[in-house]
């Protein structure tokens, strides 16, 4: 049986979910490259060095987008957002840039 996977829904939901997850700092897990440890959520582990959130952000957004991509077909999402699909990644990139502003304001 072929899964009714919607590419349009997947990419749209990923953009929205990624922006929300990053905004509220809700990665699925953190990875600590110095020790190889993982922790669920965004709670930092002591004495393990710096934690990396990106894998957990990606995982959370991919799960949300994959689930909805099975529920909402291309013909629906493609028709509703026709001609405006590019707005989603552009919006998410702008939100990411806004959340990163402090790196550039520190000098």
């Amino acid at each position: 049986m072929k899964l009714p996977f919607s590419a349009v829904t997947f990419s749209i939901v990923f953009c929205v979910a990624y922006a929300a997850i990053y905004w509220f700092n809700q990665p699925l897990f953190l990875y600590y490259p110095m020790t190889g440890a993982f922790t669920w959520g965004s709670a930092a582990l002591k004495d393990s060095g710096p934690g990396m959130a990106w894998y957990g952000l990606m995982a959370n957004a991919l799960i949300a987008s994959f689930v909805l991509a099975l529920a909402v077909p291309d013909r629906v999402s493609g028709r509703i957002f026709r001609n405006y699909l590019w707005v989603f990644p552009v919006g998410t990139m702008l939100i990411c840039a806004y959340l990163l502003r402090n790196f550039f304001l520190q000098g």
Partner: peptide, 8 residues
């Protein structure tokens, strides 16, 4: 972040 968005 942009790479992740592009991947999706």
């Amino acid at each position: 972040h942009f790479a992740g968005i592009g991947f999706a």
